[in-house]
Write a protein that binds this DNA or RNA. Sequence first.
DNA 1: CGGTCCCGCTGACAAATGTCATGAGGGGGG
DNA 2: CCCCCCTCATGACATTTGTCAGCGGGACCG
Lengths: 202, 202
Amino acid sequence: MTVRVLLADDEHLIRGALAALLALEDDLVVVAEAATGPEALAMARAHRPDVAVLDLQMPGADGVTVATSIRDELPSCRTMIVTSHGRPGHLKRALAAGVRGFLPKTVSAQRLAELIRTVHAGNRYVDPELAAEAIAAGDSPLTAREAEVLECAADGAPVAEIARRTSLSPGTVRNYLSSAAAKLGAENRHTAVRLARSKGWV
Amino acid sequence: MTVRVLLADDEHLIRGALAALLALEDDLVVVAEAATGPEALAMARAHRPDVAVLDLQMPGADGVTVATSIRDELPSCRTMIVTSHGRPGHLKRALAAGVRGFLPKTVSAQRLAELIRTVHAGNRYVDPELAAEAIAAGDSPLTAREAEVLECAADGAPVAEIARRTSLSPGTVRNYLSSAAAKLGAENRHTAVRLARSKGWV
DNA sequence: CGGTCCCGCTGACAAATGTCATGAGGGGGG
DNA sequence: CCCCCCTCATGACATTTGTCAGCGGGACCG
């Protein structure tokens, strides 16, 4: 009984190498590869794999978004996320999207093969370290608006610009920015953005 | 005649997969692997490879730093950089460090193997797209101080903090920040930081 | 139904930041 | 040698932020 695998990663070097290594396993067969989010989705539709191994950061649409679409369209396809920079918030989003495996790229190929089987068998696996981080980081203390405003502030836009983009009054924007910074223990909006980013809350 | 290769990348998954693929080439042999900058240097000293393939971003010390050390200590060892996010400035720094190959991770393993041979033969290779970007981006218009101050501002530190760290007067810091932002066409220090980052000038 | 929380706004004040003019000193190049 | 640019500084000013208090409305919950 072979497991049909979809491999999505924007780095050809990694994708190709991975495909080659997984091909060495008798019970795994890579039926499709993709370099972008939309491509991954298209490949999934076309080849209906048993397990989709998705990179978190891809052009077009990120791994979690693709996983959500796959769950809706191909419920029988299990998804797992592989990532270099695992932020606590991403893990939470991924689990909400029905992802059954979440691991860093620091694992070995051998281990990845094992975990593909684990996931295919219907079990879940989350890297213990990433799980610990996620638990330690806890839930975002930010309200929806606070997060939205903070996100707009991420590229250094002035308050007026943020107010325009969010259709809010400039005063309101400043208030949200202020309360968000206070909740995060930051002394200004920019360090607040960095903090929120590091925890995957934006 | 075989080429002895050192492989440095912090992602075990990629490193292992790459090692496996390169092993398929008759004339290439991976004599050492490393997951961090310092480790890469230690491995280079211990195994004296012909070619060192270095990831740009590694814990401890980045690929260019390692390349510089290798050039000083092991002049016979050629170095090449492989990276996911190639910023124009990095390429410039890399060439200054005597790096002979610079390519994105989107290349295929097959191509990487070819290029290892190219570099080993004493030739250079720079990814055309990255080269074009580097030329388009041009040199940094920032003076040494401007860059230094901008870098300190990168984490959202207030002027007073930057002044302390650089041992400058707060007024001077603001002047540098202002002129740097003007040169980069940014409307405030934070967008200036982002711009400079995107071009690899900080 | 009252309490609590988020939303959205206003106004006012303090603090940080951006901008400009100005000046002294030093190094490099024409 | 003179000019230009970088360095470092000061002072003054406008603008942008951060902070705080307060108000009305709506949603949810006990």
